[in-house]
Design a protein around this nucleic acid. Sequence first.
DNA 1: ATATATTCGGGACAAATGTCCTTTTTTTAG
DNA 2: CTAAAAAAAGGACATTTGTCCCGAATATAT
Lengths: 177, 177
Amino acid sequence: MQELYEQQERKENIIVKQYAKGQKLFFQNEKATKVMLIKEGITKCFFTEDNDKEYILEFLGKGEIVGEIEFIRKIVCLCNIEAMTDVTVYAITPDYFGELIKNDLKLNNLLLDVFAERIINTASRASYQQLYTIEHSLGKLLELQSKQEIAMSKEDMASYLGVTVRSLNRAFKSLSE
Amino acid sequence: MQELYEQQERKENIIVKQYAKGQKLFFQNEKATKVMLIKEGITKCFFTEDNDKEYILEFLGKGEIVGEIEFIRKIVCLCNIEAMTDVTVYAITPDYFGELIKNDLKLNNLLLDVFAERIINTASRASYQQLYTIEHSLGKLLELQSKQEIAMSKEDMASYLGVTVRSLNRAFKSLSE
DNA sequence: ATATATTCGGGACAAATGTCCTTTTTTTAG
DNA sequence: CTAAAAAAAGGACATTTGTCCCGAATATAT
C-alpha cells in the first residue's frame, strides 16, 4: 500500500507531514481536511465522550490509513488521532483520494480488506469487553502489547479497556495472584 | 443495491432462499458457504462468548448484506445470524461474489460505504456502552427501536446492551422515575 | 542533600451490575 | 376456558467497578 502511494508522489496531491509526540492529527468533531497514510510512528485513535471520559479504539501504526471513513461518509472526525511517538504521514487531498476511489480497483480491494479487518476487531472487542470482566480483557491487551511494541501509560491502558485506573490496578493485582 | 442483483439473476450464481423465524442463516465459527443479501425480513447478528453470554452486534434488514466480511477475510463466521422474522435472501456463490468484487467498481464503492457506516456504528457504540451507564445506552436503544420497527424481547434488548435482564429492568425503572 | 512537586498505588466507602430465585403476568396448547 | 409453559418483574445478597482521597515512591529543583 505504501508503495502504491510513494510511486504516485511528486504531484501536490500528496505531501509528507510531521507530527511531534503528543500532537493531534485529527480532532474529534472537526472537519478533516486530508486523508492520511502513516509512514512512521504510532498513533492512538480515541473518543472523548460528553462526560469527559476517553475510550481508545485502536492503535494505528506504519502503513495504516486514517481519515478515510470520514471522507467516504462525508462526516466530521469520528474521534481524535494523536501521535504517541513522533509521526510522519503522507497527507492526501480529498479530491485526489476521491479520484483514486472512483477509479482504482486495486485500492478499493485493499480498503475493503482493511475495513473488514477493523470491523472484526472492533466488533469482537466490543462483545468481549461487555461480556467479560476487566481481568480477562486486560489479558488480551497484554498480548496485543507484546505483539506490537507499544509503550503505553496506565492511563492509556485504562482508556483502552474503558475503565478507571483504579480498576485497572485491581485487575493487575488479581492477575498476579 | 438490490436492483444491481435482481438484474443479474437467472444464472445459478444467485438463488433465493427462505428462512423461518428463529432459523439461523450463519453459525458462528462454521464456514460460510454463501454471501447473502437480505430481500425481506429482519435478522439479528450476535456473538456467543465462551461463557455462554450473548452480545447482539446489530440488526440487519432489507437491503443489507451478510457474510461478505467472512468472504473477504477468508475466515469462519464471526457471529451468528438468526432470523427474527421470516426472512428471504439472495444467496450468492463465493466464486461469483469474488468476481464481482474484482471487477465491479460500483459494487466496491457501495461496499466501502456500507463498511464505513458499520465501523462508525460499532465503534461509537463500543465507546458509549463502556463509558456510560446502562440507563444512557438504553435511551439510545429505544431511539433506534422506534426508528426501525423492530419488535424485540427483553432478552434481546439486554444482549444488545451487553447486560443482564435484571439490570435492564432496573434501568427501565429508573428511566420512568 | 533537602525540600517541593508529581506520579502511583491502594484503602474506604458508594454506586452499579450480576446471580439466584420467587412471584406475577402473559402466551400457548388442548 | 383451563392447564401448562414462557416471559417478565423484582427482592435479597454478592461481586465488580467507580469515586474520593491519602500516604508512599519517584522525580525535579535549589
